[in-house]
Amino acid sequence: MEYLFHIVIIAGIYASLAVSLSLSAGQAGLLSLAPAAIFGVGAYTTALLASNVDIPLAGGLPCAMAIAAVASIPLAVAASRLRGDHFIMATLGYQVFLASVFENWVDVTKGPLGLASIPRRIFDSWYISSNSEFACLALVLSVLSVFVAMRLSNGAFGRVLHCIRDDESIALALGKDIRRFKFQILMVSGAIAGAAGSLYATYTTFVDPSAFTINESIVVATMAIVGGIRTLWGPVLGAAALVLIPELLRFSGIPHTVAAPLHQAIFGVALIWIVMNLPQGLLGSAKGKALSQNRKTK
């Protein structure tokens, strides 16, 4: 039973990450390959606050969200200056940069050794000991993430995001300050990822750089894309499905050294398949992008 809750927790955490990615990618056309790094920023922030300054999750989580949002600012700057595929590569660069900081800044992060024994204190003297309580937290986080995504995807705000996604020049011609929108959406995305990281650090009581690498980012992107990057619940389903696969592989008795690369290969194939078979609107209309970006523009 505890094991089942563990799956729910991991699925819930990754679902929030997938939702955060789909918010910026599916709605605004900004695909970031750095969610794992921002996730890590949140995790390390909470871990350091909890271990060094004795701040419980109730304080650590908002701090993690704030710092993760700040950590997303360079992504927003890149988004304001770069077109689609250049932006994706810039986020890749940022991801590996942050990951290398986690590895190398040994004084703070203890490098590959990681930070251990993170207290599972939520508030005052309330300590969590069972997985079921964490599972509730994880579910609440997922639902809240979807809720935020829903609010920002619909209505007037969402309409502007869709303009930015499909053809930036329309948004500009309508007088929308697209830089502001890009900043806001990426910072919200970052805050959600930071919250997920916070929960992750408190649950696993141990953070090390291996959980925040480019591989994890690609996993999150695949979850969102496979589940349906423009939908609200799709990324959640994608996360649930793609968290289950390695667990099922484990049960089938396949040794870990085979299971790990095997499930990665499955992710890779799933990604290729989806990209090749999905109608063009994965990250915005190709026609709109061609019009918006191939003209000689200011």
Binding site: D167, I170, A173, G288
Partner: peptide, 10 residues
């Protein structure tokens, strides 16, 4: 614009 620019999916 010279080539009509709309949000096609909406």
């Amino acid at each position: 614009f010279q080539e009509v620019r709309l949000v096609w999916g909406e």
